[in-house]
Write a protein that binds this DNA or RNA. Structure first.
Length: 200
DNA sequence: CACGCGATTCGCT
DNA sequence: GCGAATCGCGTGT
């Protein structure tokens, strides 16, 4: 039975108005979608990390509000995209614990638009490294600074997160990756056994 | 206004 | 496994 495109089942804004680690865990299995003039590409979220505020030294929001991180303080359900290492973009979904908070999406399982993603990444569709990292998935989906602030809960948004169609299954909790402070905190979540999870 | 460094990736060894 | 690439943000002068 076909479903109309008009009935896109996005996660409502209230989904994001909860503690960041809850949002991070429950985003597993959901589908990150990006529509551009080049076409639609989407993937199932299989790995996330939670970043909060003053209690989390590794968070961009740890030392208060700045022109870069202000969305973390006031925009639950919106995209927070930042540029890192002079080369890569990272995609986050803003949450709302007590503000601030955001969930870094670290890996996807490609679902649609494989050809487009492969072209953007400069590799074959079958390459397992297509979306198994924060910068990689941003490049594959064509997510850039221009998408900062996108309303992920809006069915009409070109960048959005839809409800997953399959249960994520067992979830593994571990330490976060690529940071030098607060690395002991159990704020990384991934779907057990997924071949698309970032390395380590 | 100058400087240091990061929620990364890729290529080479 | 290691290090370069590359640049904007945040902090301090």
């Amino acid at each position: 039975m076909l479903r109309s495109r008009a009935l896109i089942d996005v996660l409502a804004v209230d989904f994001y108005r909860r503690p960041t680690e809850v949002v991070a865990r429950e985003l597993l299995g959901a589908v990150l979608v990006h529509e551009t003039d080049e076409g639609l590409a989407c993937g199932r979220i299989v790995e996330t990390e939670a970043y909060t505020g003053a209690d989390d030294p590794a968070s961009h929001a740890a030392r208060g509000r700045t022109p870069r991180n202000f969305l973390m303080f006031e925009a639950p359900g919106q995209a927070y995209v930042y540029f890192i290492y002079g080369n890569h973009f990272c995609f986050n979904a803003v949450s709302f614990d007590h503000p601030p908070g955001a969930v870094l999406v670290r890996a996807l399982e490609p679902l649609r638009g494989l050809d487009l993603m492969a072209r953007r990444r400069g590799m074959r569709e079958s390459d397992p490294r297509l979306t198994n990292g924060p910068g990689k998935l941003a490049q594959a989906l064509g997510v850039t600074r221009a998408d900062n602030g996108a309303a992920l809960y809006d069915p009409a948004s070109r960048l959005r997160i839809e409800r997953g169609t399959t249960a994520p299954g067992p979830i593994v909790v571990s330490e976060r990756i690529g940071i030098n402070v607060a690395r002991h905190l159990p704020l990384r979540f991934h779907i057990a056994g997924s071949p698309c999870v970032s390395k380590r």
